[in-house]
Amino acid sequence: MTLTVENAREIIRVTKEAGAAENMKPLSVVVVDAGGHVIAFERGEGAPPGRFDIAQGKAYGSIMLGIGGTAQRDRAEAQAYFVLAANGAYQGRLVPVPGGILVRDTKGAVIGAVGVTGDTSENDLAAGEAGIQAVGLIAEG
């Protein structure tokens, strides 16, 4: 299975709605495929223009390291040298914090990732998980 544009748009829609329902700041959401390529992106109304790069960094890091943003943050705290080296290897494109979420199909295969930014990292994660689950896929944040 692969992530479709329709899946990506629905993930984005539900993620932003989940954020609005919890009175979060405007969320920006990117969905990438298993190679880290952007399928879809939407910046929340009123969100700063730089949110694309942060959202993409969260999603890209999840794909390239094979772990969600929470695990990346924990790894950075335990082994900062590794995350710094990995970020160097990926030309500074990793944003290792919650809100980077691996997307798995129902068999457990990684088929993409979602990056959410705009509120606290934990809130970004919760909203993104809602979006992923809404299309019947498994979120690993």
Results as ranks from 00 to 15, higher is better:
G115Y: 02
E140T: 12
A47C: 11
R51T: 13
A55L: 07
S121A: 15
E10N: 10
L102Q: 11
E17L: 10
E122I: 13
A109M: 07
D53E: 14
A71W: 02
E77I: 07
E42M: 14
N87H: 14
S28P: 06
T70L: 10
R93H: 14
E140V: 15
F82W: 08
I54L: 08
R104M: 07
Q56P: 00
A109V: 06
G66M: 10
A20P: 05
N87Q: 13
D124C: 05
A18D: 01
V30K: 00
A40R: 01
G131K: 01
E129R: 09
A59M: 06
G100E: 10
A134N: 04
G128W: 01
I111A: 03
V103G: 05
G68C: 10
A89Q: 15
S28C: 08
P48D: 12
A130E: 10
L27P: 07
A40D: 13
L94D: 05
K107P: 00
G44E: 10
K16W: 01
R51G: 04
G128V: 06
E22R: 15
I12E: 00
D53F: 09
E22Y: 04
R9F: 06
A85L: 09
V116R: 04
T120H: 12
L102K: 12
V29H: 06
A127P: 06
V114A: 13
I11G: 01
T2Y: 06
G108N: 03
A47I: 10
D105M: 13
R13P: 00
E6W: 01
I101A: 04
V110P: 06
A86D: 09
L102I: 14
Y60I: 04
V29S: 07
T120F: 12
A71S: 08
R13E: 08
A21L: 08
G35W: 02
Y90F: 15
K107V: 08
G100V: 12
A113W: 02
Y60A: 02
A85Q: 11
V38I: 10
R9V: 02
I67W: 00
Q91Y: 07
G69V: 13
G36M: 01
G69F: 09
G131Q: 02
R93P: 05
V83H: 06
G35E: 07
V83N: 08
L125D: 15
M64Y: 03
V110C: 08
R104I: 04
L27H: 03
K58D: 09
F52T: 00
R51N: 10
Y81F: 12
K16C: 06
G112L: 00
